[in-house]
Design a binder for these strands. Structure first.
Lengths: 140, 140
DNA sequence: TTATTTGTTACGGTAAGTGTAACAAATTAT
DNA sequence: ATAATTTGTTACACTTACCGTAACAAATAA
């Protein structure tokens, strides 16, 4: 699952949970509402649960519900919870490239550059809370 | 071919051309030096040629050479020449999503957000010239 | 004990990315 | 003119990633 898909799916689910709060909601219900398979959604929600963003409970009265206030949940936090890899990942073909060659040095250069870009993106995401998204959406 | 691969390959080739300047170099020679297939490289270089970054000539004495000064070639320019799509592209599954629903609104929200991020990245790339990359590489 | 829900794994189908080959068109050398 | 070289482009097999779905053990409540 791609990073952007995971991120948007997460926010859709979290918005749904915010509306239902404090009632817990099952993955099936959320999945049907946002148009995704419930297994895939559970995969995402379980990661959010491990990172303390949502609470999950098994059983008849189980389901998911928000564990933090929307104003305290930021995009960067969500992103880190669901994705270990970076959004940008450079091709570093160590095969067929000589040590200390120009191509290798350029690979390192782009590795650094993309890491920097990645940091910029994460900084931006830190400034966006779930609450701000919900407010913006409601004004449309 | 992914955007990051195209970009790094382009810069590798351009650095090679800068070193050989003003002698034209064949795609085979560059391809061997940077470890890529010559057909794929020609695909990239032809796009750079269409955008006035390099000059291409057929025939025995043909090949590629820089058409602009390294200080006048910027990453953003290269990126635009080789890639029409954006680096980030959101999943907008219009199927199974109702009109004016929360998920649809959130899709639009992320579409806007990612477009903004994209602009930030391009702004950053505008500040990086081929010359600055070459200087940085040579100091390592 | 039964029913419900999470958490996780697996699998087939589809799309994207990679590496290579091939060949027409253009240009130069002989 | 003819041959050789190089670009520009297309095609193809192979691999990898992605997407949608199903399945089932573990946990929990009725």
């Amino acid at each position: 699952m791609s990073a952007s898909t995971k991120l948007s799916t997460s926010v859709k689910a979290l918005c749904y949970l915010e509306r239902a709060y404090p009632k817990p909601v099952s993955s099936s219900e959320i999945a049907a509402a946002i148009g995704i398979n419930s297994s895939k959604l559970r995969m995402i929600l379980s990661m959010l649960a491990k990172n303390g963003i949502v609470e999950s409970n098994s059983g008849t009265t189980g389901g998911f519900k928000l564990k933090k206030q929307p104003s305290d949940i930021h995009l960067q936090e969500i992103y880190c919870a669901i994705e270990d890899r970076k959004a940008f990942h450079l091709d570093v073909r160590k095969d067929s490239i000589k040590k200390n060659s120009l191509p290798e040095k350029l690979n390192f250069y782009f590795l650094d550059l993309f890491a920097e870009v990645q940091e910029n993106i994460e900084d931006k995401m830190k400034t966006i809370s779930l609450e701000s998204i919900i407010k913006k959406i409601n004004n449309n």
